[in-house]
Amino acid sequence: MPELPGMPDPAPNADERELLLVWLAHQRAAVVRKVADLDEAQARWTPEGALLPLLGIVNHLTHVEWRWTDGAMLGEPTSRSEEEFRPGAELTVADAIANYRARARVTEALVRSSPLDRLTADGSGRDLRWVLIHLIEESARHAGHADATRELLDGTTG
C-alpha cells in the first residue's frame, strides 16, 4: 500500500492559544493531505455510496468553521445544508482546499484577536476555548473518516 509521508505531532507550546491553533492546523493538514493529490472523480468517490467523499469532508469542515466563528462567536446568520457533504460539480478540489485555507485564516485571526474566555454570541455559555476544542475534535473525527475513505479508494494510508 502506498504511504503518505508522516506528519509529526506539533511541538509543545506553553501558550494555550497557539497550542490549540497548531493542533487545529495539524488536523486540517491531515484532511487536506488526503484530497490534495486526487482528481475530481476520485475526490467525489465513496465506497458503494457509504461514507462521505473526501471533497465533501473538506467542504463540510469549511462550513463548520464558518458556523462556529461567524455564527456562534460573532452572531452572524449561518445555515447548514446536507449539500455541503456532497458538493456539486462547480466546486473543484483546488477551490475546496483554497476555501478551507481561507476559512482557516479567518478562524485564526478571530482566535488571535479575542480572549479564550470570550463567550459565544448564541447565549449557550460556551466560550472561544470550547469552540476551538470542538473544532479540533470535529476536524480530527473527519480526518479519521478521510483516512478510511482514502484507504478504500486507493490503498493510501498514513
Rank of each mutant, 00 (worst) to 15 (best):
G6W: 02
E48I: 02
W66Q: 14
D147P: 00
P87L: 10
R101D: 13
P12E: 12
L74N: 14
G158Q: 04
A146I: 02
V93S: 08
I57P: 00
V58C: 04
P10Q: 06
D147Q: 00
S139V: 02
P12Y: 02
L74F: 08
T157D: 07
R126W: 07
H60G: 01
G123H: 04
E65A: 14
D127K: 03
A11K: 14
A96G: 14
A96T: 09
M73E: 05
L61E: 07
A94F: 04
W68G: 03
W68F: 15
I136Y: 01
Y100C: 12
Y100N: 11
A50G: 03
T107N: 03
P5L: 15
E84D: 12
E48G: 08
G75Q: 09
L116E: 06
T78P: 05
L152D: 00
P8M: 14
L110N: 01
G71H: 11
A43T: 04
T107K: 03
L132T: 03
E108D: 15
Q42A: 15
T69E: 01
G144A: 05
R126E: 05
L132E: 06
R44H: 06
L54Y: 05
T149Q: 04
A98G: 14
I136Q: 02
E83V: 10
R129S: 03
E138Y: 02
G56P: 01
L38P: 07
I133Q: 13
H63K: 06
A25V: 03
L20S: 07
